[in-house]
Design a protein around this nucleic acid. Structure first.
Length: 767
DNA sequence: CCGTCAACAGTTTTT
DNA sequence: CTGTTGACGG
C-alpha cells in the first residue's frame, strides 16, 4: 500500500523522495518543488524506512524555512518528528556550542555577537593594540577576519600568509579579537560555524557520537555553503560514499559568493562523493512559459554552470514588461499606480501577491515614499532590521549583560544609557582599573568605590548600576523574559529617555513595546526546542541566542495585506504572482564593480535570474533615466542583462513622467542639435545593444554615460600592487565608481588606506 | 559631563 | 543625503 504523501510527485521528484541510503545530489531548478521533495523524503524516511527522527539533521537557509518544513513534516507524518534537528547552519552551530560549551572554554549562556557588536569589538581591539581606527578601517579589518574564519584560516595560519601592511594589521588584530571574545564568553556569527568545526575535528568522541546519531543529513541551498560549512558536513558525514547525505541546490541560484559561499561545493559534489546519485528537477510549477523562457535566456549567458533548462506545463502567460522611467521617484510612482490599476483589474490577486525587488537596500527609500503618497500598504524586509535598531540593541544589551555578566560589549553600550553621569573619562578609568585587576567591567563597577581616583558620584553610579544588573541576573532564573524586560525598561526609565528624543522617539518606544510583546510571546509559547535545553541555561539565555539569529525574512509576514519590498537576496526561496524588478540599470544591477570580474558578473546575472523566477504570472522590469545615489544625480542606461531577452517575450513602455520630460527635452535638444537630438532620447527606437560582451557601447545621445573612456585607461583589479606618485606603493583593496569616476581604495605600505580617483591619481602598475 | 555644530565618510548583497 | 565622529563651550 502506498502512502498518500507520494501522490502527485513527478518521476524525478519521486526518485529523490524514495532515495534511501547513500549520497544524492538534487539539482533543483527554481520553483521545481524542492521543499516538497525535502519534506516528503524526510517523512518517507521516518514513515517507510522506520528511521528515528532524532537520526535526521536537516539544514535550511532561514529559520522560517526550518519552521515551515517542520510543520509540513508534522502534517504529512501525522505526528511530531521529535528529536529531529532542523535549522540553519548558524542555529545548529549555536546548539552544538551550547551543548559542549565547556569543552571549548565557554559556558552555555554565551553571547552571540551580531555584526554590529563584532565591529565594535574589532574597533576596541584595534584601539587596544594602539592602531588608529582611522587609518585601518575596522569594517575592512573585521571583514578580513570574517573571510578568514569562513575559510577556516586560523590566526596562526593567517599570520604566516600576511604579506602586505593591511594583512599584517589583521594578523595582529585577529588573535586579539578572538581572545577578547573568549574572555567575554562570546562568539561572533562566524564562530558559530568555525567553533563547531573545531569541536568535531578536535574531539573524536563528540564527532563519533554525532556521526552515529545523525545517520541522515539533508542540506538545502547547498550552492550557498562556504568552506567552513562544507567541512562541517564532511566531519558529520565521514565525507565518504557511506554517508547518507542529500544536498539540494541550484548552481544557477548561487548568490552568496561575496560571503564566502563556494559554488564549487555543489559543482564538485560528484567528485566528493563518486557514488552520488544525481537527480535534476527541471519541471517548474511556479511560473508561466514566457517568464521561464526569459529566465533561461538570461542564465544561459553564464559559463560556469551545470546546465539545466526549466520547463513548464503552464501556458505562455503574459509578456514581461520593461518600463522606462524618468528617475527613481517616477519609478516608484509608476509601480504604485500599476499595482493600484492591477488590483482593480485582477481582484483575485491580493496585495500580498505583489513584490518589489531591488538590488540594494537604499532603493527602498524611493519605493517607500511613493507607496506612502498613495496610501498603499507595504512591508519592507531587510534594511535596518528590527533587532539592529538602536533602541532594540540597547534594551538587548541590558539583557545580554544580565544573561552573561562577562559581556563587555554590552557593558560598554549601556553603562551610560540612559544617562547616569558616567562619561568617557570615568568609563576609561574604570576599564583600565578592571584590566589591571583582571576583573570584568561589571565586577569592577560593583567595586568602583574601591577605585583609587574616581569621582565619588561616578563611583556610586557604577555601584548602583552593577547592583541592579546583579539583581536582574538573580531574577532571570525565576521570571519570564517578557516580565523581566518590562520591569527592567521601567526601572531604567528608558521610555522617558526615548520620549525626550522627540518625534522619532515615539517610534522607538513602539519598537521597545514590540520587543516586550515578542518576549512575552516567547514565554507563552515556551518557544524552546527540547534539543536546545541544556543545564545552566535560563530562558533568557535561550531568548537572546534565538533573537540574534533571527533574520528579517524570518519576520516577514506573508499573510499581511501589503506589498512586499525587499532585496533580491532576501527573496530567495519566495514566490509571488506579480514581481516588479526595479533599478535595472548598468552600474546598479549589475553593480558597477561586477564589470571588473567575470565571476562577480555571473553572480549578478544569477541574482537577476533569481529575481525573474520569483514570479508566477507577471514580471515588470523598470529602469530609470537618472537616479540619485548618495546625493548625486547619476545618469543610467538600461541594464545589459536585458539584452539577451528575446523581443517576442517582452513589451516596453514609458511612464507618463518620462514621456513629459522627453517632450520638454526634445524641444531643448533640437535647438542645440536638430539633426541627432530629436527622437534620440528615447531608447525605445534605439536598436538593442548586442550584449555579446559585457563591454559597454559609447553613449549615443549624450544622456547615457560614456563608458568608452574607461576602456582606454589602464585597467586595475583588486589585489594588484600599484605605485602612486605621492603616496608610494600599495595594494588595491577595492574599486568603485564608473568611467570617469572610477575610484580605487588602496592600502599604501607607508600611510595606510586611501581612496583615490583613478582619473587624477596617475597610478602605475608596480612591476 | 553633555549638548551643539561642523566636517566627513560612505552606499552591495547577510548569517 | 544621512549617520557618525570630533571639537568646543556651557
Amino acid at each position: 500500500m502506498e502512502a498518500e504523501y507520494l501522490d502527485g510527485l513527478n518521476p524525478e521528484q519521486r526518485i529523490a523522495v524514495e532515495h534511501f541510503e547513500g549520497p544524492i545530489l538534487t539539482l533543483a531548478g527554481a520553483g521545481s518543488g524542492k521543499t516538497r521533495v525535502l519534506t516528503t523524503r524526510i517523512t518517507h524516511l521516518i514513515h517507510e524506512h522506520g528511521v528515528d527522527p532524532s537520526s535526521i539533521l536537516s539544514v535550511t537557509f532561514t529559520n522560517k524555512a526550518a519552521a515551515e518544513m517542520r510543520t509540513r513534516i508534522r502534517r504529512l507524518l501525522g505526528r511530531e518528528p521529535a528529536g529531529m534537528w532542523i535549522g540553519t547552519f548558524h542555529s545548529i552551530g549555536a546548539r552544538l556550542l551550547r551543548r559542549h560549551a565547556a569543552r571549548l572554554g565557554w559556558t552555555p549562556n554565551f553571547t552571540i555577537y551580531d555584526a554590529d557588536e563584532a565591529l565594535r569589538e574589532t574597533k576596541r581591539t584595534l584601539e587596544r593594540l594602539r592602531h588608529s581606527p582611522k587609518r585601518w578601517n575596522p569594517k575592512a579589518v573585521h571583514s578580513a577576519i570574517s573571510s578568514a574564519k569562513n575559510q577556516l584560516v586560523a590566526p596562526s595560519q593567517y599570520e604566516k600568509m600576511a604579506a602586505d601592511p593591511f594583512s599584517r594589521i589583521v594578523a595582529e588584530v585577529y588573535p586579539a579579537y578572538d581572545a577578547a571574545l573568549r574572555e567575554q564568553n562570546a562568539f561572533d556569527f562566524d564562530d558559530l560555524l568555525v567553533k563547531p568545526v573545531e569541536l568535531l575535528r578536535d574531539h573524536e568522541e563528540i564527532r563519533l557520537a554525532y556521526r552515529s546519531r545523525f545517520t541522515f543529513v539533508l542540506v538545502d541551498e547547498y550552492q550557498d555553503t562556504n568552506h567552513a560549512q562544507y567541512v562541517f558536513l564532511q566531519l558529520l558525514t565521514a565525507g565518504d560514499d557511506a554517508g547518507n547525505i542529500m544536498v539540494v541546490g541550484d548552481d544557477d541560484q548561487s548568490i552568496y559568493g561575496w560571503r564566502g559561499a563556494d559554488i564549487r561545493n555543489i559543482l564538485d559534489f560528484e567528485k566528493d562523493f563518486p557514488a552520488a546519485r544525481i537527480i535534476r528537477l527541471e519541471q517548474n510549477y511556479r511560473s508561466t512559459g514566457r517568464i521561464l523562457d526569459a529566465a533561461n535566456a538570461v542564465i544561459s549567458r553564464n559559463t560556469k554552470r551545470k546546465g539545466k533548462t526549466l520547463r513548464t506545463e503552464a501556458g505562455p502567460g503574459d509578456l514581461l514588461t520593461i518600463v522606462s522611467t524618468l528617475d527613481e521617484r517616477d519609478e516608484g510612482d509608476w509601480i504604485g499606480s500599476e499595482i493600484e490599476a492591477r488590483m482593480r483589474r485582477h481582484p483575485d490577486v491580493p496585495l500580498r501577491g505583489y513584490v518589489v525587488l531591488y538590488r540594494t537596500n537604499s532603493q527602498s527609500r524611493a519605493m517607500e515614499e511613493a507607496f506612502r503618497r498613495r496610501d498603499l500598504p507595504y512591508q519592507i524586509v531587510g534594511g535596518t532590521r528590527f533587532y539592529e535598531r538602536r533602541e532594540i540593541m540597547d534594551a538587548l544589551a541590558y539583557l545580554r549583560l544580565i544573561s552573561n555578566p562577562r559581556d563587555a560589549g554590552a557593558f560598554d553600550r549601556i553603562i551610560n544609557y540612559p544617562r547616569r553621569g558616567l562619561g568617557d573619562t570615568s568609563r576609561a578609568k574604570l576599564l583600565e582599573w578592571a584590566a589591571q585587576q583582571a576583573m570584568t567591567p561589571l565586577e569592577a563597577a560593583l567595586r568602583a568605590d574601591e577605585h583609587p581616583d574616581l569621582r565619588g558620584g561616578a563611583a556610586q553610579s557604577f555601584v548602583t548600576f552593577a547592583g541592579m544588573i546583579q539583581r536582574y541576573t538573580a531574577l532571570a532564573a525565576h521570571i519570564g523574559v517578557g516580565e523581566l524586560i518590562e520591569k527592567l525598561i521601567a526601572e531604567i526609565g528608558m521610555v522617558d529617555a526615548l520620549r525626550d528624543e522627540g518625534p522619532e522617539g515615539a517610534d522607538r518606544i513602539e519598537n521597545v513595546n514590540e520587543l516586550i510583546a515578542g518576549a512575552a510571546d516567547f514565554d507563552a509559547r515556551a518557544d524552546i526546542d527540547e534539543e536546545d535545553r541544556v543545564e545552566d541555561a535560563t530562558a533568557l539565555d535561550m531568548f537572546l541566542q534565538k533573537v540574534t539569529l533571527l533574520t528579517d525574512v524570518d519576520r516577514h509576514d506573508p499573510d499581511a495585506q501589503a506589498v512586499t519590498l525587499m532585496t533580491v537576496h532576501n527573496a530567495k526561496g519566495l514566490e509571488f504572482p506579480v514581481v516588479f524588478i526595479a533599478g535595472m540599470e548598468d552600474g546598479l544591477f549589475p553593480l558597477a564593480r561586477a564589470f571588473d570580474e567575470p565571476d562577480t558578473l555571473e553572480e549578478e546575472r544569477r541574482l537577476f535570474y533569481v529575481a525573474i523566477t520569483r514570479a508566477e504570472r507577471k514580471v515588470f522590469i523598470s529602469h530609470a533615466r537618472t537616479r540619485r545615489r548618495a546625493g548625486e544625480v547619476m545618469p543610467g542606461r538600461p541594464s545589459s542583462f536585458l539584452d539577451p531577452l528575446p523581443k517576442h517575450l517582452t513589451d516596453e513602455l514609458t511612464t507618463p513622467g518620462l514621456e513629459r520630460a522627453r517632450h520638454a527635452g526634445e524641444t531643448r535638444w533640437s535647438r542645440r542639435d536638430p539633426v541627432t537630438g530629436a527622437g534620440s532620447l528615447g531608447y525605445r527606437d534605439r536598436p538593442r545593444t548586442s550584449g555579446r560582451s559585457p563591454r559597454f557601447e559609447g553613449s549615443d545621445d549624450g544622456v547615457y554615460i560614456d563608458y568608452s573612456d574607461a576602456q582606454d585607461a589602464p585597467r586595475f583589479v583588486k589585489g594588484e600592487r600599484v605605485r602612486h606618485p605621492q603616496f608610494g606603493r600599495g595594494v588595491i583593496r577595492d574599486l568603485s565608481g564608473l568611467g570617469q569616476e572610477l575610484k580605487a581604495t588602496i592600502d599604501f605600505d607607508t600611510i595606510g588606506r586611501k581612496k583615490v580617483v583613478l582619473r587624477y591619481a596617475n597610478l602605475q602598475k608596480e612591476l
